[in-house]
Each structure stands twice: as C-alpha cells, then as structure tokens.
Amino acid sequence: MSLVTIRDASFSYETKQIFSRISFSVEKGEIFCLIGPNGCGKTTLLDCVLGFHHFHSGKFQLMGKDAAGFRPGRVARLIAYVPQIHERTFPYLVREIVTMGRSAHLGFFESPSRKDRTMAEEALERIGIRHLSSCPYTQLSGGELQLVMIARALVQETPVIIMDEPTAHLDFRYELVIMEVITELVKERGLSVIMATHFPNHAFYFQSKQIQTSIALFNNGRFLAAGEPESIMDENSLRELYGIHADIISLTDADGKTMKHIIPVSTIKDMDA
C-alpha cells in the first residue's frame, strides 16, 4: 500500500489552472523529489497534499484512504511539514518550538505533557542540536532553524514528511548537514519524504546513498517525466524543463561510490525557434 497516492489530480485558482492530471505515489522509505522552475506549481501541489487546498478532481489517498475530507489533525498525524520560509515572530525557545510538533497528538484543550517535552529533547539530540534547546530560536542561523524545523517534524511521528526546498538559502555546509540528516532519518526510521527542490542534484545525492528515490519533472502544470533519476534526468529533459544547456558528469567519492552531478552550462536563447 502506498502512503500517498495521487491520481489525475487537478487544481486551479479561480479560473487559472495551476496543474492538471497529476499522478504519483510515495512508498515507505522513499524520497520523492519534485523538481521544476519557479512558479511551476510545486508549492501548490504540496499544499494540496497537506490539506491547505483541496484538489478539484482526481483521487487523493493517504494510507489507502480517501483523504479529501480529512481534518487537519488527521492529516498532521500522517504528514509533517518543513516549510520553505519560517517567519519568526516571538522568541520562543528552541525546545518550545519543537514541542509544538506534538500538537496533532493532543486533545483540543490539552497541553503537552512531560513525555511530549522529553520527546522534543530526544529529537533535538537526534538531530544533533540539543545544545540549542534553551536558545531563543530567533537567534539561530538559517541552517540551525532548518534543523529545528526538521526536529519539530520528527516529533510529529508521521510516516511522511513534506519539505519545501529545505536547503534554499543555506550555505554549502548546512546544505550537506540537512541532506545527511534527511538521509539518516529515511534509512533509520523508514520515513518517506516528499521534497520540492530547485536542485536536481539532490536526487542523485539520495540515490547515491542507496535510498529509493524517484523524481518528477514539473513544469507548466504537468509532469514532463517521472521515475528513477538515472533514467529521466538527462541533457534533453533539462533543456525542456529549464531551457538550459547542461552537462551531466559522474564523480567518485572517497568511498569509491559514484554520484552523478549536473553542471548547468548556458541558457538557450532561442527556445521557441
């Protein structure tokens, strides 16, 4: 049984069609990368999966059950969310932020218990930022904040985590830190991750870590191609997706594993011609 199943799903704002007849499914332990240029509708598609919006047509199942009418609490026990941008307002302590991940498991008027707070501390330990536990989270760097958001998603104890461009705005080191954390979590806990990203290389990275990875190239409201990164990501598909010339190279890391990498070379000026 797939955790997330979407068949022929469409969505539009007012009269503007955002995407139509999208289909994909996500299995346990799988990373599903959604790749496409800015404004292609990636975030809207994720919003529909999270229940912020509702698909206008098509089939949408979570754990094999029709999820169209799920209440937010039910969705939140199945899917956790790591936002692309988190706007920080009040200087909550890091552990308070992480504890909020327990909300979906609480009654309407219930507050987190000692057990919930312990879980938050454990998640911070797991992610390796326990030392930040008592910091106001407004003082964290962008990378540290992203780790906190992942920890929060972790204590939500969901089979699926949706991440919207988790490494945007991060430096090289933190990009790798985040990628490594995701890799470990997927391997250790059998989590599934749906991830929107601007970097097709992320898919190759996960694949090189022996994680079941699929990829969908998303543009103009439809999937150009979907499947194994190796099979669908080539110079042609990149030209169609981004309008660029790119080279794909292979490199071998210290452990002797090979990893593919895309090098963007130049834009194509006369696409229409």
Binding site: D47, L50, G51, F52, R71, P72, G73, V75, A76, R77, I79, A80, Y81, P83, H86, E87, T89, F90, Y92, E96, M100, G101, S103, A104, H105, L106, F108, F109, E110, S111, P112, R152, Q156
Partner: peptide, 21 residues
C-alpha cells in the same frame, strides 16, 4: 486553549500542518 495559541502563532499554514483546525 492557550497551547493552541502557541501553535497558531506559527502562522496559519504551519499551524494547520501541525494539526490545528
């Protein structure tokens, strides 16, 4: 409902993703 006020202060999207109606 004071715990939910914490979560609501994360913004609508995140609050809903955290399971708040």
């Amino acid at each position: 409902i004071r715990w939910q006020i914490n979560v609501l202060s994360m913004g609508d999207r995140e609050a809903q993703a955290l399971g708040i109606h």
